[in-house]
């Protein structure tokens, strides 16, 4: 009686494993690509102190909008299985 369910279950698990495996492969490629970009970028020279006019604009500063980032983190923490990355991930709420 349980046979059809076991077959379904096995298929589901195999599908999930294949999906996770694909995720891992694509993730490794993306991380490698990201690091390569970053390393090549780091070899550039940066700027002199008097060339920081654009970089000092609010829109060019990482994490300048604290409240907005907090609102976003709280919303996505409540609805998804991931959190953190941009800053600390400890959610500190029993979100529904």
């Amino acid at each position: 009686m349980n046979l059809p369910i076991k077959t379904f279950t096995r298929k589901c698990f195999l599908k999930t494993e294949a999906k996770v495996s694909n995720y891992k492969k694509s993730s490794r490629t993306l991380i490698f690509f990201g690091f390569s970009m970053l390393l090549s970028a780091c070899s550039s020279l940066g700027v002199q102190p008097w060339e920081r006019d654009i970089l000092s604009k609010k829109e060019m500063i990482f994490g300048a909008c604290v409240l907005e980032a907090g609102f976003e983190d709280h919303t996505y923490f409540s609805k998804e299985g991931s959190s953190g990355g941009r800053s600390f991930s400890a959610g500190g709420c029993g979100c529904n």
Partner: peptide, 18 residues
Amino acid sequence: VTQVINRSWIVQANLSLG
């Protein structure tokens, strides 16, 4: 790590463990 690339480009990379 945050890196200024040039006058109009800045990048950031974080690794985190929880």
